[in-house]
Amino acid sequence: MHRKSFSDMPCPIARSLERVGEWWSILILRDAFHGLTQFDQFQKSLGIAPNILARRLNALVENGLLERRRYSERPPRDEYVLTEKSQDFRPVLWTLLAWGNRHFAPEGASVVVVDAATGITADPVLMDRVSGKVMTHPAFRSAPGPAADHRTRARHAAPSQIATEATP
């Protein structure tokens, strides 16, 4: 049974999940951010079956999140290197890490984000680059963009407007 592909959906969250939503992909990227580059390193770190690891690495390469580089011809061996696109994913991982610590670590944080210069624990937040404001609800919300289709516009309509449109 094949799962539904999100790659053609107009939603940027769905499209992102198509690329990194499978948990092995996120854990592979986590390990790549920690310096792992070789198949055997990922396999040892994750305890993942070789066939699944190969599929996930191939998908990450196809989606431009890792670059495959040959480092040995005999035997043929490749390393997997982070790309600019995957570097943009690092803050997403840090935010997920902080969220997990806050809500799912009753024993306390096992990993934290720290200031590299001082070692002081950081508290990642999402900030708007234009205004410099911390992005919280209700001060910020999602809205249809220029390429939004009718369904996306309807999904973002005010609740009272949705009820009116649903009534014959």
Rank of each mutant, 00 (worst) to 15 (best):
A116V: 10
A49Y: 12
L17V: 06
N63S: 02
Y71V: 12
R141K: 11
V20D: 02
E79G: 07
D149N: 15
E107L: 12
S86G: 09
E67M: 02
Q43Y: 06
S86L: 06
E62I: 00
S7H: 07
A158F: 15
L17I: 06
K4C: 05
L27N: 03
P144W: 04
N63D: 02
F42R: 12
T152W: 07
S110T: 07
I52P: 00
S25I: 02
A54H: 05
S160M: 12
A166M: 15
W99I: 03
A32V: 11
Q38V: 09
T136M: 13
S16H: 08
S45T: 11
N101I: 04
I13G: 08
P159I: 15
R151A: 15
S131V: 02
A143Q: 13
S86R: 04
A139L: 14
T167M: 14
T83R: 06
R15Y: 00
H156T: 10
A54P: 00
H150L: 07
T136S: 14
T167A: 15
D40H: 13
R30E: 13
E79R: 08
V125R: 14
N63K: 04
A154V: 13
F33C: 12
N58T: 06
G108L: 03
V92I: 05
G119Y: 01
F42W: 13
A148W: 10
A49V: 12
T164G: 10
S16Y: 04
D149G: 15
D123H: 04
R77C: 01
P75M: 13
Q41F: 04
H156N: 14
D78K: 02
F39V: 03
R19G: 00
A154T: 13
A166W: 13
N58W: 00
R141A: 11
W99H: 11
K44Y: 09
G132T: 03
D115F: 00
P91V: 01
T167V: 14
P144I: 08
L126T: 12
A49R: 15
I162P: 01
A139Q: 15
S142L: 12
V112S: 07
Q38M: 10
P106S: 03
A154L: 15
L60N: 04
Q161V: 11
I52M: 08
L126G: 03
E84W: 04
I13H: 08
Q41P: 05
M9G: 07
A49P: 08
R68E: 05
V61I: 00
L17A: 07
A143Y: 08
N58P: 00
N58Q: 08
A59N: 05
K85P: 01
A32W: 03
D115V: 05
L66G: 03
G100W: 08
P50D: 12
A158M: 14
A59G: 02
W94D: 13
G35S: 10
K4F: 04
R90H: 09
R68A: 11
T167Y: 13
M1T: 09
L93N: 07
W99E: 09
V130N: 13
T83H: 09
L82G: 11
D78V: 03
G64K: 02
R77D: 01
E22W: 01
W24G: 00
V125N: 11
L96F: 02
L53N: 01
M1H: 10
R70I: 04
V134E: 11
A157M: 13
R3E: 11
L29P: 11
S86P: 07
F42L: 12
